[in-house]
Design a protein around this nucleic acid. Structure first.
Lengths: 244, 244
DNA sequence: GCCCGGCGTTGACGCAGATCAAGGCAGGTG
DNA sequence: CACCTGCCTTGATCTGCGTCAACGCCGGGC
């Protein structure tokens, strides 16, 4: 699964694929590292490719590494002993995994499509942060914003109806890559219905039924199972917010 | 509500009350700041007291400040327009609020008992972080660990039964202040049943009924509504983990 | 072409937890 | 003291979503 490091794309946005949603190369934490140092960094990191369905982080395993996604989309999840699964997030290019200081990973990560990521040892990360304080600043920003998103998701899981959860999900998916442009009307859903269900705390059947209902009401269109068109963005947003 | 700053307890553990759970004065981010600088810092921060029930952060308000709790317990929550509420966390001495860079607060905060906190302007925080890189390191650690806790809570809200949620809640409450000692058998619940319900994504009635059931099964005792005794810690942990 | 397995949709039914309702208890107030 | 108000508990009933089941579609292997 490990491929030789052919070029210094460590934490480098130039090495990342363009954002699937807006064709821009997202600025990343890497901006904190001068180009001249990238090559040197490359000697201590490993670039890895993960095929769809590959689990590349296992909850409970010794947490020795820190990851930076440079291509594709992965899902993060936690499992209960009997198999119940909660997906805590879908992460794309530029995301960081394994930040928390802990002996073991607190979640698993599985590639949805073809994923590439850059892996550092934790000790190497520490050295990196010491050397580039700007990087630490960016990471703090990133973590803080993820915390805000996590709280929003708690509101969804704890208090929203199935209908509102789907509306929230679709609205947020349409806003992916919002830094580049406004919400898109049409977009792809790379994940399965099962993934969506486990992300929203529902069952596959409820997700399917609710999407069908939203379609029959004219709020959305579903040209294929992996594609959605928002027909009534304002109504969807209102629904997502818990009004109406 | 604002009281004059009588002594330099800004971010200072010596200024904070002992931890309610273990009588220790928790080390905090402040360790990153030499004592000799504390007095100077004091000139730029405000110490505030909030009586029980006081809302001292309002979701949606302009987010100008950064908070450090130095006494008491507060609840953080988000509201839907029709009044549904999700409590995203209970925070005690040493906790930080308002880290995320955003125009507005993403949550509200309300004092449960008598709360004291220290407030900085965001620009002052930035200066502080520049001056004390160690503080930034600590904040990143704190945020990362909160992220892990948030993911655990998502698992609870999305996939656990009422019974498992209560068991998880009681188990984690018994572990509060675990840095000082092992889980306690007996501890206080400063929050109401309504708060617990809104934290666990349940109703008051379900919380009450489930606690009664756990009691009748001999897993816990409830000497008063604000106090709990764990009788079968292992069984409770198993239940919380989703086994059994 | 055929078969097969994974994914999605739809329908019938059941249940965990929400809702509605009534009453108990402790603390505060005049 | 009586009264009130907020919090908690308990019971009866309801319902949104889960569970179980059947079937259709599509893509891959041969």
């Amino acid at each position: 699964m490990t491929v030789p490091l052919s070029r210094p794309l460590v934490l480098d946005p130039a090495g990342a694929d363009p954002c699937a949603h807006c064709d821009a190369r997202h600025a990343s934490v890497c901006n904190a590292i001068p180009d001249s140092d990238m090559a040197r960094l490359a000697t201590t990191a490993v670039v890895v490719e993960a095929a769809p369905g590959t689990t590349f982080i296992n909850e409970g395993d010794a947490a020795g590494c820190f990851f930076n996604i440079t291509r594709g989309t992965a899902k993060l999840f936690k499992l209960l002993p009997d198999g119940r699964r909660q997906i805590t997030g879908f992460v794309g290019v530029g995301h960081f995994l394994g930040l928390a200081v802990s002996d073991t990973y607190a979640f698993s990560a599985e590639a949805i499509d073809h994923v590439r990521f850059c892996r550092f040892s934790r000790t190497r990360l520490r050295a990196l942060l010491d050397e580039y304080p700007l990087m630490e600043k960016r990471l703090l920003e990133v973590a803080s914003n993820e915390l805000v998103a996590a709280q929003e998701q708690m509101l969804l899981l704890g208090r929203k109806t199935a209908r509102e959860r789907l509306a929230s999900f679709l609205a947020s998916q349409s806003r992916l890559g919002v830094s580049c442009q406004h919400p898109r009307q049409r977009f792809a859903l790379p994940m399965t219905r099962g993934d969506i269900a486990d992300y929203l705390g529902l069952t596959i059947e409820t997700v399917s039924r609710t999407l069908t209902k939203l379609r029959s009401e004219g709020l959305i269109e579903i040209p294929s199972t992996t594609e959605v068109v928002i027909r009534a963005p304002a109504a969807l947003e209102r629904l997502a917010a818990g009004a109406a």
